[in-house]
Amino acid sequence: MEFWENADESAFLWLNGWVGRLPWLDSVARLVVSDYLVPLTLALALVGLWFSGATPEARERNQRGVMTGALGVLLANLAVQVMNWFVFRPRPFVTLEASLLFYRPVDSSFPSNPAAVAFAVAVGVGLWNRRVGWALLPVAGLYALSRVYAGVCYPSDVLGGAAVGLAGGAAAHALLHWLRPVPAFILRIARALYLA
């Protein structure tokens, strides 16, 4: 256990140690780590995906992907909240000498909620549209990496968050498969309104 904690801290200190060496990289990281850029980009991708598809069948698959991604976010968020009732891990800047590119969050460091949300979208969509899912995964990965670089998460926090996101996306897919009439009903209503 101690070995893993030391490895986690060493990996954090190595990555965070780059802050200040390349000013352009710090500027990019400040932008990527923001609470708004990646979540908004993912949300816009879902909007675009809803309307995309060369055939009605392809469009329906994309729309099911949008629903799965959105439900995945809800489930991943819920899982993080529940885990935070039992686990509280202080942020790295509390115990280590870290260079911060972000404000000082006060919630638990583990698991990383932003990583969970981003991976839930990528996986939820990817289970219906692999091409878009593969395109969103690096965005989610970069978002997670930027949390470590900016000094607000340990590598294990974002790995834990990514795992929660993967599970959230997969659970959403299974849940919507089990509750098949619900997405079918939503699509029927949207189709009647010429919006699906």
């Binding site: 609470d35 708004y36 972000f102 000082r104």
Partner: peptide
């Protein structure tokens, strides 16, 4: 996006003037 991120500092916690996930 350029307007939003370049016009002001946007890394603000939701306990101050920022937005939490639900508000977003």
């Amino acid at each position: 996006m350029i307007w939003f991120f370049a016009s002001k500092p946007r890394n603000i916690p939701d306990t101050l003037a920022g937005l939490d996930g639900n508000q977003q």
